[in-house]
């Protein structure tokens, strides 16, 4: 469904060029919960920003169902964006709008009539367990609740893919668990493909069927979660796994 080919992303910094991604190849299939794990600064967010069209690749291509991102512009690009939902680490909710208005927002941008948008938004809020917070403002919610609103908002236009950048790294372990369960339900019940970026191996173990390990701008390992974690090939994967064992050890 998503095909990344020879993706390279270089930023021009004052101190010179920084390569955040180098020759990344990846294929994400429909129905996957695809984990992308790596240390801080490895290039995870950059990859997600490329997938969500916020950054354009320096080299290489990304395509969704065979449609190359770089061939799209204007209205087509907007339509592509509506096929994907994005969940950010920092929630990025509109602070001056209520929870309900936040979830309705993508629909109203798309010109969906107000009544219909409200109905759909209420459905989604019910799904994430926040229908009683519809009239609250984001500032009145806890981190976990905010992330649920963000997830509901990302789902409002019925996207085929949900892209999540460290959706749980600002949350405690119990809240993390419930948000991950929600994402799992979304994948199984709504058949939404999920890409989830994280630095915690536990997140991958909990819900991802596939995983790619990224280190210093390059993909070092990729495959089904079971296989990769049962027989880690790279040092970085071993390191990430080792750390996890120590934590629970």
């Amino acid at each position: 469904m998503i095909e990344i080919k020879h993706l390279t992303k270089t930023f021009q910094d004052k101190s010179g060029p920084i390569t955040a991604l180098r020759d990344v190849n990846l294929s994400i299939e429909k129905g996957d919960i695809f984990g992308i794990i790596g240390m801080s600064g490895a290039g995870k967010s950059t990859l997600l920003r490329c997938l969500s069209t916020l950054e354009t690749p320096t080299e290489g291509s990304i395509s969704l169902d065979g449609v190359d991102y770089s061939s799209l512009s204007g209205q087509q690009l907007i339509e592509l964006r509506r096929r994907m939902g994005v969940v950010f680490q920092g929630y990025n909710l509109l602070m001056q709008r209520t929870v309900l208005q936040n979830v309705m927002f993508p629909l109203s941008l798309a010109g969906v009539p107000k009544e219909k948008a409200r109905e759909r938004a209420m459905q989604l809020l019910q799904m994430v367990g926040l229908e009683n917070k519809a009239a609250s403002y984001p500032a009145q919610l806890s981190g976990g609740q905010k992330q649920r609103v963000a997830i509901a908002r990302a789902l409002s236009t019925s996207p085929e893919v949900l892209l999540c950048d460290e959706p749980t790294s600002a949350l405690d372990s119990l809240t993390t668990k419930s948000v991950l369960e929600l994402l799992y339900d979304i994948n199984t019940k709504l058949h939404v493909t999920i890409v989830i970026i994280t630095h915690e191996i536990a997140v991958v173990k909990a819900i991802c069927n596939k995983v790619a390990v990224i280190d210093a701008a390059e993909f070092v390992e990729c495959g089904s979660t079971k296989e990769v974690f049962a027989d880690p090939k790279s040092d970085i994967t071993k390191l990430l796994l080792g750390r996890e064992e120590k934590k629970h050890g």
């Binding site: 969500s52 069209t53 916020l54 907007i78 339509e79 964006r81 509506r82 994907m84 939902g85 994005v86 950010f88 920092g90 990025n92 909710l93 509109l94 602070m95 927002f105 993508p106 941008l109 798309a110 908002r153 236009t157």
Partner: peptide
């Protein structure tokens, strides 16, 4: 917050 504007772009805002 720049993130809020990023989020709006991702929703397909003009």
């Amino acid at each position: 917050d720049a993130g809020v504007i990023d989020a709006a772009k991702c929703m397909g805002a003009t």
